[in-house]
């Protein structure tokens, strides 16, 4: 259970890292290694060169930018995010998510960027970041581009990131309403998870818009447009009823795999359970949002 031999480089700038990974042979970025090193040891992934990005300054910053958006450096560990004052203040649900990812060893070294780039369908952060309408900033040899979290994961273990593109930062608008995340798991990874964000109107009593994403059921997090539509301009107090009414049709639209985490009907049912529990939590949180 050792990886095949590889070269190891530790550049100190993003440009050097991108250049290094693009050289001949298979090069891969390496940060926490909690997924990559396991896969290398099991020899399901091969790399000739690992480009360690831990020597690059600035990749682990968390801040609110001038556009009232929250930026999370891709190299932030789950542990760092879970304890960060900005995240705890503005997106406490993300802080709790990061505090519960996998296990303590993974949280201490695993990074949010690495988690996204691995494209594991049974993961916590992608669902949440999609619900938060996050953009991922990729830096490659041909320049910088932004990809919406919804479009980032293409399929199981596959993203739109080019091998020589480095995920630099994750950016999303500061939430204007309650944010919830719930998952069900009976093992190492979530069987199903649901993230929901509400933007409240200025009165604080009605939902202007909602984003709902369900993860781990298919190849990537899926939106629930029926529920999102049902929540538009609905009073917070009536949100649960609105979701309940829309739920059967919404769940029917989900693409659900049967796998080791359970049968499709069971996991579809769980998505509904989690969504309703999220609604109760959001209603409670919504009531105090402006106070």
């Amino acid at each position: 259970m050792l990886p095949s031999p590889f070269q190891f480089e530790r550049p100190s700038t993003i440009a050097d890292a991108v250049r290094a990974v693009g050289e001949s042979g298979d090069g891969m970025f390496y940060a926490g290694g909690t997924e990559l090193l396991l896969a290398l040891k099991m020899r399901v992934i091969r790399a000739d060169r690992l480009i360690d990005i831990k020597g690059i300054p600035g990749l682990d910053c968390i801040a609110v930018n001038g556009m009232n958006e929250i930026e999370i450096g891709a190299r932030c560990t789950h542990r760092k995010i879970s304890g960060d004052p900005v995240i705890r203040e503005h997106v406490p649900a993300l802080a709790s998510l990061c505090a519960e990812v996998a296990n303590i060893r993974v949280r201490n070294v695993g990074t949010i960027g690495g988690n996204l780039c691995f494209g594991e369908p049974h993961a916590d952060p992608p669902t949440m970041l999609a619900a938060l309408n996050a953009r991922l900033v990729l830096v490659g040899s041909r320049g910088t581009r932004e990809v919406h979290a919804d479009d980032f994961i293409r399929s199981e273990m596959e993203t739109v990131r080019e091998p020589d593109e480095l995920l630099r930062v994750i950016v999303f608008p500061r939430p204007a309403g309650p944010v919830t995340y719930r998952r069900f798991k009976h093992g190492e990874r979530p069987s199903v998870n649901v993230a929901m964000t509400w933007s409240l109107n200025a009165d604080g009593n009605t939902i202007r818009s909602a984003r709902v994403r369900v993860g781990a059921l298919g190849l990537r997090p899926q939106p629930l447009p029926v529920v999102e539509g049902a929540l538009r301009n609905v009073a917070v107090a009536e949100a649960r009823q609105a979701i309940e009414t829309a739920l059967p049709a919404a769940l029917d639209q989900l693409e659900v795999n049967a796998d080791r985490h359970g049968g499709a009907d069971y996991k579809r049912h769980l998505a509904g359970v989690l969504l309703l529990r999220s609604a109760d939590e959001a209603v409670t949180a919504g009531g105090s949002w402006l106070k």
Partner: peptide, 16 residues
């Protein structure tokens, strides 16, 4: 668990 004799969760990650 086995499928046709192939262990499907014989790793510390998949076995809980």
């Amino acid at each position: 668990e086995f499928e046709d004799g192939q262990p499907v969760n014989a790793t510390p990650i998949d076995y809980s």
